[in-house]
């Protein structure tokens, strides 16, 4: 059967999708935060960022709605050394007719994917440690664009 095609999430999704974002602070695990920016390095204030990771053999999921500054904030509910690399990240936004998918590595483990990339592009997939977790910016377009995945 022919599959249903993708369409953009549009700009006005927060009232429909925010219910899955934890309302109370969670204090287990660590935080991944960063900004989503466009070709002009302007913040993408209407992006939806989702993460899927595996920790101790169990899959877990988190969703964040960017602030007007383009900032997102995900709580990974496991410790850094329990999480299998990479964390899979989806970005949806107005202007994106399909999601963009990237892989966030907490350390550069030099696996098949990373080794296939040139050194500068490879760096776009490596998160930087912060006092509360990791920083991972997503550059949708342009010269320092994040590596995005297909399959």
């Amino acid at each position: 059967m022919l599959p249903t095609p993708s369409q953009t999430v549009g700009p006005f999704f927060s009232f429909g999708l925010a219910w899955m974002v934890p309302q109370e602070p969670v204090d287990t695990g660590f935080v991944v935060e960063g900004v989503v920016v466009d070709k002009n390095a302007d913040p993408v204030g209407d992006a939806l960022v989702e993460a899927l990771w595996v920790a101790n053999g169990q899959a877990a999921f988190a969703r964040s709605l960017c602030e007007p500054t383009g900032r997102y904030h995900l709580r990974i509910t496991a410790s850094g050394n329990e999480v299998a690399s990479p964390i899979l990240v989806s970005v949806f936004a107005r202007g994106l007719l399909q999601r963009l998918v990237t892989a966030m590595y907490l350390t550069d483990i030099g696996d098949e994917l990373l080794c296939s990339l040139d050194p500068l592009r490879r760096q776009t997939l490596i998160a930087k440690p912060t006092p509360t977790g990791y920083a991972f910016d997503v550059i949708l377009s342009g010269e320092s664009e994040t590596v995005f995945l297909a399959w």
């Binding site: 993408v44 107005r94 296939s116 377009s141 994040t146 590596v147």
Partner: peptide
């Protein structure tokens, strides 16, 4: 402004 310019990997 938002579409990637590099081929997907």
């Amino acid at each position: 402004q938002r579409a990637p310019t590099q081929p997907l990997v």
